Amino acid sequence: MNLRSEPRRCVIFGSGESRGAAYSPRIGDILIAADGGYNALRRRKLRPDWVIGDFDSLGFVPKGKNVRVVPREKDDPDLILAIRCGLEAGCREFALYGATGTRFDHSYANVLALRYLREQGALGRIVTPDAELFVMISERVDFPAEERGKLSIFSLSERSLGVTLSGLKYPLADRTLTAREWLGLSNEFTGVAASISVRDGTLLVVKHADWVE
Rank of each mutant, 00 (worst) to 15 (best):
F60L: 08
P62F: 07
P62Q: 15
K63H: 13
G64N: 03
G64V: 03
V67C: 05
V67Y: 13
V67T: 14
R68P: 00
V69R: 13
V69W: 06
V69F: 10
V70M: 15
P71R: 10
P71E: 02
P71L: 06
E73I: 08
P77L: 07
L79M: 11
L79E: 08
L79D: 07
I80K: 15
L81I: 06
A82M: 06
A82L: 02
R84D: 07
G86R: 14
E88I: 14
C91T: 10
C91N: 08
C91V: 13
E93Q: 12
F94N: 06
F94L: 03
F94S: 09
F94Q: 11
F94P: 05
F94Y: 08
F94H: 14
A95N: 10
G98F: 07
G98L: 11
A99H: 12
T100G: 07
R103C: 00
R103W: 03
F104M: 08
H106A: 12
H106Y: 13
S107H: 15
A109T: 05
A109N: 12
N110Q: 05
V111Y: 11
L112S: 12
L112Q: 09
R115A: 06
R115M: 04
R115P: 00
E119T: 10
E119H: 06
G121Y: 14
G121Q: 08
G121C: 07
A122Y: 07
R125T: 00
A131F: 09
A131Y: 06
S138V: 01
S138I: 02
E139T: 00
E139P: 01
F143I: 03
P144Y: 14
E146D: 08
E147V: 11
R148W: 07
L151R: 09
I153Q: 09
I153F: 14
I153N: 01
S155W: 08
L156D: 02
L156I: 03
S157F: 00
E158Q: 11
E158K: 13
E158D: 11
S160Y: 13
S160N: 08
L161E: 12
L161S: 11
G162R: 13
V163M: 10
T164N: 04
S166A: 02
G167A: 00
L168H: 13
L168Q: 10
